[in-house]
């Protein structure tokens, strides 16, 4: 598929990243050019947006995302994010964003202690961020979830602030799979250009290879809307 929009979206690979190729594929399916970025390189190659994909960067040593935060590419991402560039952190990418202080809170081990892998229903609470503007507020979507350290925690003051400012972007629907505070699955920064979530939109972008959808098994493509949303936000910017 050719890049219809001319938008270039970077996907950063850290040592131990797993889902960079799926993220790049999602970018291409949405109609943009995927640009492979390397953690040790501070040059973001002029991309319009960045995805921090899932995996186990640095083996989750110390804390999930704790070492990746100091990668040269992350210094550039922090500067660009503060300047308004859209940044999406998925799973381990979300953990890296909290360690880099681009998003508040942190993730600890799932309350039930088990790795969890399932098709997860979510409620889109905020449909005005750079990565969710093509959803409807209150829309229920299904995308895969797979994590060990997925329990979102923050103190009550921070949670109240997130709720009050509409920065809870996704909430777990039906069942809270990891004990996250207030069923929070994803959050954004105040500006709405930085979004992090534990579930994986990049695994639900093509019919036949996604979770169950309205059209049948593996038909779900709810994840693609994250990537078409950022393209819409880039066009309108």
């Amino acid at each position: 598929m050719t890049a219809l929009t001319g938008a270039r979206i970077g996907v950063i690979t850290f040592p131990g990243t797993l889902d960079d190729r799926d993220a790049a594929r999602a970018v291409r399916l949405a109609g943009a050019e995927a640009v492979a970025l390397w953690h040790a390189d501070a040059d973001l190659q002029g991309v319009d947006a960045v995805v921090l994909p899932g995996g186990f960067s640095y083996g989750d040593y110390l804390r999930a995302g704790a070492i990746s935060r100091f990668a040269p590419a992350m210094s550039a991402v922090v500067d660009a994010a503060n300047g308004g560039m859209p940044v999406l952190g998925i799973c381990n990418g979300f953990q890296i964003l909290t360690e880099a202080h681009l998003l508040p809170g942190s993730m600890v081990k799932n309350d039930h202690l088990h790795f969890v892998c399932r098709e997860q229903s979510l409620v889109v609470e905020n449909a005005s961020t750079a990565w969710t503007n093509q959803f409807e507020a209150g829309q229920r979507i299904t995308i895969p979830l797979k994590n060990q350290d997925g329990q979102f925690v923050a103190d009550e003051h921070v949670l109240d602030e997130l709720e009050g400012e509409g920065r809870v972007v996704f909430r777990y629907d039906g069942w809270n799979p990891n004990g996250s505070r207030r069923d929070i699955a994803g959050i954004s920064n105040a500006r709405g250009n930085v979004v992090g979530l534990m579930p994986h939109p990049e695994h639900a972008v093509e019919a036949g290879f996604g979770p169950a959808g309205a059209e049948g098994p593996r038909a779900g493509t709810d994840g693609l809307t994250f990537f078409t949303s950022v393209l819409a936000s880039l066009v309108s910017a």
Partner: peptide, 8 residues
């Protein structure tokens, strides 16, 4: 700054 995360 590195060995601990003050959030948790």
């Amino acid at each position: 700054t590195l060995l601990s995360n003050p959030v948790i």
